[in-house]
């Protein structure tokens, strides 16, 4: 398993965040974030609630705006220029905690919507790509159903397939398994692991530490808007250096 962790990490920089600060009004929610993600790296971000980890990854695809510092994704600087935002969003895919599938469209239509209207792919081609990715997440037979008819785990896998249909180079996961029943967590994590094995660059906010150990190159611990500690998974879990990391780990690994 440690093999997977070191495989396929190149030197090319996928995401470069420098001195990034964000305020909500006067509340300083992200402070002096410096982070460089290489292509092929898998990073797990953990931390207590309110630490800003979701805010951080939402800044990367411009769902949130940052006031200071710079974020560069795939060589494109994230600014208020709409063209840059569009470019970044088509290279970065995101999965949400509450799936956010479009309930009025079938599974297949959910997956083909963006390729047709953003990448202007012909419908037939988009549908073939969609079926390919639905097979990859192991639910091709659900293509004609509506999201309301699927279980939570199936919906999240569809959400992953939907993002993959845009052929992103980076995937962001915002607590993808937190809203799932325990018996469905494994199927989603398995999907994410197979994505990782294919070399996808991933940033994952999650509490699933088993997943982190298995797949991550780096685990980052955030607290109060700052990156407090980051390290390889083995070192991070066995030898946490900061007090706050130790406290957090004892709380979530305890049960």
């Amino acid at each position: 398993m440690a093999e997977t962790a070191h495989m396929q990490v190149s030197d090319e920089v996928a995401i470069s965040i420098q001195n990034m600060n964000k305020w909500y009004g006067t509340f300083h929610v992200l402070r002096d974030i410096d982070l460089t993600v290489n292509r092929g790296e898998r990073i797990v971000i953990c931390g207590p609630s309110g630490s800003g980890k979701s805010t951080l990854i939402r800044c990367i695809n411009a769902l949130e705006e940052h006031q200071k510092g710079s974020i560069e994704v795939d060589g494109t600087l994230l600014s208020s220029d709409l063209k840059n935002i569009d470019k970044i969003r088509s290279e970065v895919g995101m999965c949400f905690q509450h799936f956010n599938l479009f309930p009025h469209l079938t599974i297949l239509e959910n997956c083909t919507l963006a390729p047709i209207w953003v990448r202007k792919t012909p419908k037939k081609e988009a549908e073939e790509t969609a079926m390919h990715f639905l097979e990859k997440v192991k639910i091709p037979e659900q293509a004609g159903k509506y999201p309301g008819q699927l279980s939570g785990g199936q919906q999240q896998r569809v959400a992953i397939a939907r993002s993959l249909c845009m052929k992103p180079r980076i995937m962001l996961f915002d607590e993808p398994t937190s809203a799932l029943d325990p018996e469905m967590i494994k199927e989603v994590l398995d999907t994410m692991i197979s994505l990782a094995e294919e070399g996808m660059t991933m940033l994952c906010v999650t509490h699933e530490m088993g997943f982190a150990r298995q797949v991550a190159n780096r685990v980052i611990f955030m607290d109060a808007g700052q990156i407090v500690e980051q390290n390889e998974p083995e070192e991070f879990f066995n030898n946490p250096k900061s007090d706050r990391t130790q406290l957090f780990l004892s709380q979530i690994l305890g049960h």
Binding site: N61, L63, D86, R89, S90, V92, G93, M94, F96, N100, L101, F102, L113, A114, W117, V118, A159, R162, S163, M166
Partner: peptide
């Protein structure tokens, strides 16, 4: 958010 994240 999901629709924006897909680039729409």
């Amino acid at each position: 958010e999901a629709a924006s994240a897909l680039g729409l």
